[in-house]
C-alpha cells in the first residue's frame, strides 16, 4: 500500500474512532432501556478496539499464527464482558 493510501486509511480510522466515541456518549441520552444501552456501548467499544487492533496494530496484515494470540483473547474478553454485564444487570438497573 502506498504511503498516502495508508495515511488516509489511518485518518479514516481515527475519524471512525472519534465518531464512535461520540456515539457512545450520545447513546446514554437515547430513550432506550438500560439493557440496550449497555449492549450498544460495549458493542461500539468492541468495534473501536477491533479497528485499532486490525489497522493500527496491523493485525489484519499479520499471518494467522500471530492473529490467534490477540484475537482469541479479544473474543474471550468481549464474550466474558457481555456475560458478566448481563449477570450484573439486575443491580445496575436499580432505579
Amino acid at each position: 500500500m502506498y504511503d498516502m493510501d495508508r495515511t488516509k486509511l489511518y485518518v479514516y480510522v481515527w475519524g471512525i474512532l472519534v465518531a464512535f466515541t461520540i456515539i457512545e456518549v450520545i447513546t446514554l441520552l437515547a430513550p432506550l432501556t438500560h439493557t440496550v444501552i449497555i449492549a450498544a456501548v460495549i458493542t461500539v467499544a468492541s468495534v473501536k478496539a477491533i479497528a485499532v487492533v486490525s489497522i493500527y496494530q496491523h493485525l489484519k496484515d499479520e499471518p494467522n499464527s500471530v492473529k490467534m494470540f490477540p484475537l482469541t483473547l479479544l473474543i474471550l474478553l468481549i464474550v466474558f464482558l457481555l456475560l458478566a454485564l448481563l449477570i450484573a444487570m439486575p443491580n445496575m438497573m436499580v432505579q
Binding site: V25, I38, V41, A45, K48, A49, V52, Y56
Partner: peptide
C-alpha cells in the same frame, strides 16, 4: 504495538467507568 494496546484497554475502561 504496545501503545495501541494501551489505547485498546482504555476503549473499554472509558465506557465501563464513565458511561455505564
Amino acid at each position: 504495538l504496545y501503545w495501541h494496546m494501551v489505547d485498546v484497554i482504555w476503549l473499554f475502561l472509558f465506557p465501563l467507568f464513565y458511561l455505564l
